[in-house]
C-alpha cells in the first residue's frame, strides 16, 4: 500500500491528517507486516481519525465496529436472520426437510456484522474497532481468532477466510487493561499530544483563515495548560475548537479578556478553569 514512511506521511497529509513520525512509521509497519494496529492515547488526539484517513488513502471501505459494554458475537460477527428464515419455511410448505434446511442456512439468510464484513469480499477494507476497552473480556477472545488468522468460523457454512486482509485499527482509551494476548497480536502505537510545531500545522490546516501569529499563541497557551496539573488537560480537538472560537469572535491576537471568556472551550471542569486562570495571571473570573 505504501512505499516508504515518507510516502505514508505525504499521503495522509493529502487527506488532511498530519501524522507525527511515530504515527507514520507505525502505519507503514502495520501495512508491511500485515498486523493489526492498536492505538492508545488520550481522548481527542485523532485515533479514530487515523483509521478514517488510512481508509481514504487506500481507497478502501471503512468498516467500523463500535464497542460498548455488552457488545456480543451477534453484534460483532454475524447473526442469522430468523424472521426471514421463518418466512422462507412457511413459504415452502411442501418442500422436504433437507431442502429447507440447506436453504435457510445459506448466505442469503446471514446478516454479516462488521468483523465478518471486513473479512469477506475482495475489495480493500479498513476495519476500525473503536473503543475496544469498552467491550467485555469475552469479545476480546472473539477478536483473537479474527485478528491472528483473519478467519471466522460459521458452523453451518464453514470457515470464511479473508482473501484480502483488511487493514485493522483498534483504538482504546485505556479505561480497562486489554489482555496481553490481544496486545501481542498488534503493533502498539501511543498517540500523545503532538509537538508544538506539528500542532501549529494541524491548527492551520483545520482552521483555514487563522492568522499564523494567533495560531502560534494558541498552541503555546494550550502547551502551558498541558503542563499544569489539571483534571482534564485540553486535547488537540479542544485546541482546534478554541482556534475556531477565536476566529468566530474575530480576535486576531490573544489578550486577557478573550482568554478568560473562552477558557471554557478548552477546560471542562470549573476547578480547572479557576486554577488555569490563576496560573495564567488572568484577573478574577
Amino acid at each position: 500500500m505504501f512505499t516508504s514512511v515518507d510516502d505514508v506521511s505525504a499521503r495522509l497529509a493529502e487527506t488532511g491528517y498530519l501524522a507525527s513520525p511515530a504515527v507514520a512509521t507505525t502505519v507503514f509497519l502495520a501495512d508491511r507486516l500485515g498486523k493489526p494496529l492498536l492505538v492508545e492515547g488520550p481522548a481527542g488526539v485523532g485515533k479514530t481519525e487515523l483509521a478514517k484517513a488510512v481508509a481514504q488513502v487506500a481507497q478502501a471501505r471503512l468498516v467500523r465496529l463500535q464497542c460498548y459494554e455488552g457488545v456480543d458475537e451477534s453484534r460483532a460477527l454475524y447473526e442469522w436472520n430468523h424472521a426471514k428464515q421463518l418466512l422462507r419455511i412457511s413459504a415452502g410448505r411442501d418442500e422436504t426437510w433437507d431442502a429447507t434446511r440447506t436453504d435457510i442456512f445459506s448466505e442469503e439468510f446471514l446478516l454479516a456484522r462488521p468483523l465478518l464484513t471486513a473479512i469477506r469480499g475482495d475489495d480493500p477494507k479498513v476495519l476500525l474497532i473503536d473503543e475496544t476497552d469498552k467491550a467485555d473480556v469475552e469479545v476480546e477472545g472473539l477478536l483473537l481468532e479474527v485478528l491472528s488468522d483473519f478467519q471466522v468460523t460459521v458452523p453451518e457454512l464453514g470457515t470464511v477466510t479473508a482473501t484480502r486482509r483488511p487493514f485493522v485499527v483498534l483504538t482504546s482509551n485505556a479505561t480497562r487493561e486489554l489482555s496481553e494476548a490481544l496486545r501481542r497480536r498488534c503493533l502498539f502505537l501511543h498517540i500523545g499530544f503532538p509537538e508544538e510545531e506539528l500542532e501549529r500545522r494541524i491548527v492551520r490546516m483545520k482552521v483555514p483563515g487563522i492568522d499564523a501569529a494567533l495560531a502560534e499563541s494558541v498552541v503555546r497557551v494550550v502547551g502551558a495548560l498541558r503542563a499544569m496539573d489539571l483534571r482534564k488537560v485540553p486535547s488537540v480537538a479542544e485546541t482546534i475548537d478554541w482556534a475556531r472560537t477565536l476566529l468566530a469572535l474575530g480576535a486576531d491576537t490573544l489578550d486577557e479578556d478573550i482568554v478568560r471568556d473562552t477558557l471554557g472551550v478548552l477546560l471542562k471542569h470549573q476547578d480547572d478553569v479557576l486554577k488555569a486562570a490563576a496560573k495564567l495571571d488572568l484577573d478574577a473570573v
Binding site: V5, T25, L29, R32, L33, G41, L187, F188
Partner: peptide, 26 residues
C-alpha cells in the same frame, strides 16, 4: 522484520519501529 522494512539509516524511524513492535503499553 521491522528493521528489515525500515532499514538502519534513520535512527528515529528505527526507534519508532522497534517501539511499535516490542512495546505493549504506554
Amino acid at each position: 522484520r521491522a528493521v528489515e522494512a525500515l532499514g538502519l539509516a534513520d535512527r528515529e524511524l528505527l526507534r519508532e519501529g522497534l517501539a511499535a513492535t516490542l512495546l505493549h503499553t504506554t
